[in-house]
Nucleic acid binder design. Structure first.
Lengths: 271, 271
DNA sequence: CGGGTCGTTGAGGGCTATCAACAAGTGTGG
DNA sequence: CCACACTTGTTGATAGCCCTCAACGACCCG
């Protein structure tokens, strides 16, 4: 009964490593419609199916809050479909978007350690959420170490992603940070349409600002300029990237001051 | 033979959760001299001892490179003593310090997944490094799931730390970021001396800049001002924080615009 | 004591946050 | 279906933080 549309996931592709997600702008558009659930990767198909069956499935509406920061984390979450954002509110009302979550990615993993959720999680589209009680996952980890590796892999990937964002935030101007953020969205969620690549959920200017650590007016101006150059369009609150490569090219404009021909890094080169 | 000074760690304190390391400025100074090795937490003492014995121990000099970014990660690392920094070089020669590592913390965990080290690791003091081949750790994870939880816990903690830094970097001016960074160093490495709390290894202005995403001259100016106010001193290349509370107070100066009395967040409040 | 690294300080200007007012889009109820 | 309220986005003006460039001083090590 809990098992429904998703039971067809059973024949899992074995051990599919998540893409390395390096800092470079590998411009690709998401292909698969059926999410690869990181947590189940590489498991004996029977075990995977069993674990999948025990997930609590739930349809979520857009803008629904999946959990909030500070709650005791009781379960581990994965999206079966849809998308969500992890948001951290700051004193004063500002907020940052820590991450967009796509189907298959684990979130809420602090549950495994009986910690508190560090962020709010908000669905940005209608979708399907799978939840496992932390206790259950722990028993699976005990019996199937592969599950632990899958969690570790996911956390490592997120850590790499955060490191990369930290780097960008420190050293790149808004324009490039914004380009990078959009390219990342394309890579994670982009759907090819006739008009270009579409991000299939609303992304407001404020969202973009919260993603790159900037402000609404600044983001607006920048995006506007790109709209004027026909690189980006907007159709009913959704971003459509008409010319992905043009956006990617922004990353290399005027940036990358030549790496300083001296052997030892000169002083100014370090910053 | 490999087993030497560290064998006395055997009677481990059970299940010591690492401190939550929240965003707030809990001003405390490190107390324990014998590191609690996260990887071994909560294990049967016999197993812990066994695993500890299998570590490859190595004395490292200050400034020694423990591994470099891009290398295939063959082992999981922990410091038995000393301190290290994880550094990510950026095109153009700039770099950022991703993290300072203290004794007991796991680093180089990508090894578990046969990935590549994402950063350079450089010792900042003489110290002791423990290494386990990734293969060995994996067999321990298979047999003792607690090891996996320890890794997960460590990664979670780092993720929280990164989120917190991302938040600060987005929204705080240099002065406060700097104060926060210094307080963090105090919390992680600070030793109480007669003159104040000392960070027991050299931290250059450039290091501080790389830590907060700023530049050497700016950091220099700021720190200089604090030195003039006797909050901070320097003795042979080491930071000494004379008045920790004064530094902590900087976090609250002029910051924290009042949280907006309206019920719904006003527009400007979000940014 | 000399070279090199690291730190200090000044001047200048660009980027972008901030403030503010208006426009456009979206959804709702009459 | 239109009008209205509300949210979201646009655009201008301004200020100021901090990066950049640059030159000099201090410290450390051989």
């Amino acid at each position: 009964m809990l098992l429904s549309a998703l039971s067809n996931v059973e024949p899992l592709p074995a051990v599919s490593e998540p893409p390395a997600s390096g800092g470079a702008a590998s411009v690709e558009v998401m292909a698969d419609d059926e999410p690869t659930i990181g947590l189940l990767a590489g498991l004996d198909p029977a075990v995977a199916a069993e674990l999948l069956e025990q997930a609590e499935r739930r349809v979520v509406r857009a803008d629904e809050v999946l959990f909030t920061a500070g709650q005791l984390a009781h379960s581990v979450h994965v999206l079966g479909a849809g998308a969500a954002k992890l948001v951290q509110a700051m004193p004063g009302g500002a907020q940052i978007i820590v991450k967009y979550v796509r189907p298959g990615e684990i979130f809420g993993s602090p549950a495994l350690l009986d910690r508190f959720y560090p962020t709010d999680a908000v669905a940005v589209t209608e979708g399907v959420e799978l939840r496992w009680s932390s206790q259950l996952v722990r028993t699976y980890i005990d019996r199937h170490p592969r599950v632990a590796f899958n969690v570790i892999g996911d956390l490592e990937a997120r850590l790499r992603e955060m490191e990369s964002r930290l780097r960008d935030l420190s050293k790149e101007p808004v324009e490039q940070r914004l380009a990078r953020a959009i390219l990342k969205l394309v890579e994670m969620f982009g759907r090819q349409t006739r008009e270009g690549v579409e991000i299939p959920f609303p992304v407001s200017r404020q969202d973009l600002a919260d993603l790159i650590g900037s402000t609404l007016p600044t983001v607006s101006r920048t995006v506007r300029a790109w709209e004027a150059q026909r690189q980006i369009r907007r159709s009913r609150r959704r971003l459509v990237i008409a010319d992905v490569e043009a956006v990617a090219r922004i990353l290399y404009q005027e940036n990358a001051r030549e790496p300083d021909h001296e052997r030892g890094r000169s002083r100014t080169a370090r910053q």
